[in-house]
Amino acid sequence: MSAASPAARRGAATRAVLYAILLVFAVIYLMPLYVMLTTSFKTLEEIHQGNMLALPGEWTLAPWREAWGSACIGLECNGVHGYFFNSIKIVVPAVLISGLLGAFNGYVLTKWKFRGHKVVFGLILFSCFIPFQIILLPMARVLGLLHLANSTGGLVLVHIVYGIGFTTLFFRNFYASFPDELVRAAQLDGAGFFTIFFRILLPASVPIIVVTIIWQFTNVWNDFLFGVSFASGDSAPITVALNNLVNSSTGVKAYNVNMAAAMVAAVPTLIVYILAGKYFLRGLMSGSVKG
């Protein structure tokens, strides 16, 4: 009894330290988000006079309203809402089409293997990892030739092409864990290529569909390089608009409006993350490890 008690006390102390360290890290990680949020509800006056870490003395929605509807980006003063919808117009078709192509590719590459299937997969997969600077110049020219420069349609195409690698990777790894006998059984039952895919594999693919959609959604929504390179002006996505708003050198910096606009850009992916963090992590992991 007397021998156990100091050891137990030392154990409890260790755990207290452990929790304290983890808590400090949590505070550090939350700090930027907290500052961003509180700043977006403050008046500019309070920002200049008060403390960054303090809660707003007087809560105001004006910065959000301005960021959404009337902040000046470039020459126009309509806020970020148009660009927000641009991003949606880009994300939805890009995610759906690249996802469908990836699903088909994964299906063929695992269940209908042919000579050289590994080489094909390797070539597709490598496209995930190229620095996109290598394709900026020719892509700008091709989009021009296709009359897709400075349009959301052009960005949809770009995101489909460079999304195929990851979507194929996800579905390939997922379908590789399905026994080949499943396809063989279905063949004996008389099902063909598409029947097997749509009736047997796809209905069992909900988890990987969720992973793929979340991954592609996050990637496309957060893209900046393609947006700034291929879509200036009215067709720019929200990230480009946010950067233009924040880093335009003219006038007084309205930090509260900037933070509100940043939150507008961040909210969709944050919501997805909070609702489906597990799937988000799975996407990240299979993007890095074979899985």
Partner: peptide
């Protein structure tokens, strides 16, 4: 008709 080692039952049906 064939019975497979892994049974190969269609998981979603």
């Amino acid at each position: 008709a064939m019975v497979f080692q892994s049974y190969a039952l269609y998981p979603s049906m």
